[in-house]
């Protein structure tokens, strides 16, 4: 029982990261229909932004800098690499994000090297005991910040005019133009949000484990699974999907082996794409032309 609880608790913390990576994919996909292969590396850039800021700022503010770094990296990618290719079709736009991901990763490597980095947790002190299972305090911050990001995004899409305009662009970009919505501005907002959410949550995780420049690749793939589970549409289900993935990973590494847990996840990714591309949602996202 305690073991099960422990598995679930730590899955909550790790799942929050996968989920927020997935939300990053979903926000961009909803707006543009594309898959951003640089998602993982942008989040890592955010985490390193926080590492740098932590030298002069308290941890919470450093995480804010991490969010900002992620947002800036994402927006720069949109304007420098994707916007010039807007007439080229999704295939080329998708390939270019792969290139951007490599660029970000190698720049980080040139600056920070391949070693792990860390900074102080937001609240000091030992792990918290929950019915016999224990979880570091920082993990609660990770879960909390992911939840805050989710609620903020949900409110943004539901309640604000800009949020609704963003959804409107996704539904019918011609009509969005007709009512006077600026598509480039909206895409900028979407990329900024995507980078900020992924960057902030990953940065929060840095004090409990650590961050390396190469982490983006696996994170990106796992976030992608979360996004599939959310049907590339629903951010709530994406977050839940992230938790499911983390749970599978935890159970697999406990009952099979740590070495094979990632393999199992990526096989799951392929199986999902083939068998249930709509994820936890009821129907496949309608193809947009």
């Amino acid at each position: 029982m305690e073991v099960a609880l422990q598995l679930v608790l730590s899955a909550l913390a790790v799942g929050a990261i996968y989920g927020s990576m997935g939300i990053g994919y979903v926000v961009i996909h909803r707006m543009t229909g594309m898959v951003n292969f640089a998602q993982g590396d942008i989040a890592v850039a955010g985490a390193f932004g926080a590492v740098v800021a932590s030298a002069v700022l308290p941890p919470l503010a450093a995480i804010g800098v991490g969010a900002l770094t992620g947002a800036v990296a994402s927006v720069l990618m949109y304007h420098l690499a994707i916007f010039p290719l807007r007439k080229q079709g999704l295939l080329v736009q998708t390939i270019v994000t792969l290139g951007v991901g490599i660029v970000i990763r190698s720049i980080l490597q040139l600056i920070f090297g391949t070693g792990p980095r860390q900074f102080d947790p937001i609240t000091a002190g030992g792990p918290v005991n929950v019915f016999g299972a224990s979880l570091p305090q920082q993990a609660f911050w990770v879960i909390g910040i992911a939840l805050i990001a989710y609620v903020a995004l949900a409110l943004f899409f539901e309640r604000t005019l800009t949020g609704k305009a963003l959804s409107a662009c996704a539904v019918n970009s011609y009509a969005a133009g007709v009512v006077g919505i600026n598509l480039t501005f909206m895409a900028t907002v979407a990329f900024a949000l995507s980078g900020a959410v992924a960057g902030a949550v990953l940065a929060t995780q840095v004090p409990t484990s650590f961050i390396t420049v190469g982490a983006g690749f696996a994170l990106g793939l796992k976030g992608f699974i979360a996004a599939i589970l959310g049907g590339f549409d629903k951010i709530g289900l994406t977050l839940a999907g992230g938790f499911l993935i983390a749970l599978v990973e935890n159970v697999a590494s406990r009952s099979i082996s740590t070495a094979h847990s990632e393999t199992i996840l990526f096989v799951l990714l392929i199986a999902l794409l083939i068998l249930r591309p709509q994820g936890l949602t009821r129907k496949l996202v309608v193809e947009r032309v």
Partner: peptide, 12 residues
């Protein structure tokens, strides 16, 4: 790898 990635972006 930096050159590789940049090349990909710039050529596209």
């Amino acid at each position: 790898t930096l050159v590789l990635g940049a090349l990909l972006v710039v050529i596209l």
